Amino acid sequence: MVQRGYSRQAETLADGHAIAAVKKLYGHAGGGASVFETFAAYHTEHGGEAPSLLSTHPLDAERIERLRQAAADWDPVRQPLRPLALPMPPPQ
């Protein structure tokens, strides 16, 4: 039921918007490909495929290539990656 409303084309378009948002926020898209490289390595290591729920998503290799292209102008020395500032829960 969930997959009916989504398509690989829509997910690819969403990826493009996400790349644009990351570039606007950080000034570059560096480091983004590593997320999908990690996913791809996990799938390879465990000999499995992505869950069918993710079948509408672009292939890992396609996403990695798009993110590498988006980060082609990134200079990691001038624009180092920074961790996200996430709120920490209070100690228990």
Rank of each mutant, 00 (worst) to 15 (best):
51 P>Y: 06
82 R>E: 15
52 S>L: 12
82 R>V: 15
46 H>A: 06
47 G>W: 09
48 G>L: 06
64 I>K: 04
20 A>Y: 03
69 Q>T: 11
66 R>V: 04
24 K>Q: 12
73 D>S: 09
50 A>Y: 06
51 P>F: 08
3 Q>Y: 10
10 A>G: 09
38 T>Y: 10
38 T>E: 05
92 Q>D: 13
74 W>F: 08
69 Q>S: 10
55 S>M: 08
84 L>F: 12
7 S>A: 11
23 K>I: 02
85 A>Q: 14
37 E>C: 06
17 H>Y: 07
16 G>V: 09
74 W>G: 05
11 E>V: 08
73 D>H: 04
56 T>W: 05
19 I>V: 11
63 R>A: 03
39 F>S: 08
4 R>E: 14
63 R>G: 01
91 P>A: 15
87 P>Q: 13
55 S>P: 00
54 L>M: 10
78 R>T: 07
54 L>S: 04
23 K>R: 04
77 V>Q: 12
34 S>C: 07
91 P>D: 13
4 R>D: 14
19 I>N: 03
35 V>I: 07
67 L>H: 04
22 V>M: 08
36 F>V: 05
83 P>L: 13
2 V>S: 14
59 L>W: 09
77 V>A: 11
30 G>W: 04
76 P>M: 03
2 V>Q: 14
82 R>A: 14
79 Q>H: 11
22 V>F: 11
83 P>H: 11
11 E>T: 08
61 A>L: 03
19 I>E: 03
33 A>E: 05
12 T>K: 14
42 Y>L: 10
67 L>Q: 07
68 R>P: 04
45 E>S: 12
28 H>T: 02
34 S>Y: 12
61 A>V: 09
23 K>V: 01
61 A>C: 00
63 R>F: 01
37 E>Y: 07
51 P>R: 09
73 D>F: 00
38 T>L: 10
60 D>R: 05
65 E>H: 04
3 Q>E: 15
73 D>I: 00
85 A>G: 08
16 G>W: 07
76 P>F: 05
56 T>C: 06
38 T>H: 08
26 Y>G: 00
55 S>H: 06
66 R>A: 14
81 L>W: 13
34 S>R: 13
34 S>M: 10
64 I>G: 03
16 G>M: 10
74 W>R: 04
71 A>I: 05
5 G>Q: 14
10 A>K: 15
39 F>K: 11
20 A>M: 02
